[in-house]
Amino acid sequence: MTRPNTDASDLLLDMRGLTLGVATPDGILPVVQDLSLSLSTGETLGIVGESGCGKSLTSLAIMGLLEGTPVRVLAGEIFFRGRDLLRLSPRERRAIMGNEMSMIFQEPMTSLNPVYRIGDQIIEAIREHRPMSRRAARDRALELLTMVRIPDPAGRIDSFPHQLSGGQRQRVMIAMALAGSPRLLIADEPTTALDVTVQAQILKLIVELQKDTGMGVMLISHDLGVIAETCDRIAVMYRGRVVETAGARELFQDMRHPYTRGLLDSIPEADEDVDRLSAIPGRVPTLDETITGCAFHPRCARAGAGCDSDQPALTAFAPTHFARCHYPLEPDA
């Protein structure tokens, strides 16, 4: 099956109605529902939400990494450059992973093998996808370490992971992810384990690499600040659904979903003094809770008739701005 709409040739990733579920003794619990998002070449899409919102499972589904987890794709399509990834053979999919599409994770120490030198690990990643001599692969590894601004790459290439700092290990992971010159880089909480000064450096690096290579970047984070500063477009997820999506500037100037507003108001900022934070009441729902209607309604100050029974549809507020809410916020006067 090909993607029906092929006019936008720079459309890289196009998810349509993606629904994921986890099998439990009590039946199948939905963990991601009817998710439709797209990402173009050269664009950075941020996905933000709290624990259990489905942001990481979405990225694992794109990468085909759900195998071995109890999570299954129940419905939907994931088009990557016009081909539905969910209909490819495992072999066809493997050819894309690590080449055209790659991923970095939160904890670089657990993704690097502690007993091999980092150079050997990068060389293996390079030769996995492109047959070339060890010497040529080593040259390419040096090139990649230079790209990710590791100081003294020639000296560092023979280091073991424990000899590097946390920030340098994440740079090595990024170098490995870039080995196949990907068109799409998925970064799942890439700076969450790092200190704030190092986080700033890694985010800057990701933005610069994205500009230099023109790849599309999907950045997943619980931190609205990280997302706001790095992304062109933002999708806010709550309990398995995208509740609001818009251009970054558009979102912060004109938020429509009460959850987006609540998330923003919950953050204590270093630039201002507020006496009390306006916290969202209640708690983040667990997966086994059944909530009818809008999943946010038990915590929502604006909830009214219909919120506890009818799932709100994704409504357009601007050509690129959508929210799922029966009683959306008014634009700021």
Partner: peptide, 23 residues
């Protein structure tokens, strides 16, 4: 100063971070 400049800001206008390594 470096710590404050490193915080990702929701509102634009942050000072650019000087890349001077790690602790």
């Amino acid at each position: 100063r470096l710590l404050l400049a490193s915080i990702p800001r929701i509102r634009p206008g942050r000072q650019p971070v000087v890349d001077l390594g790690e602790p």
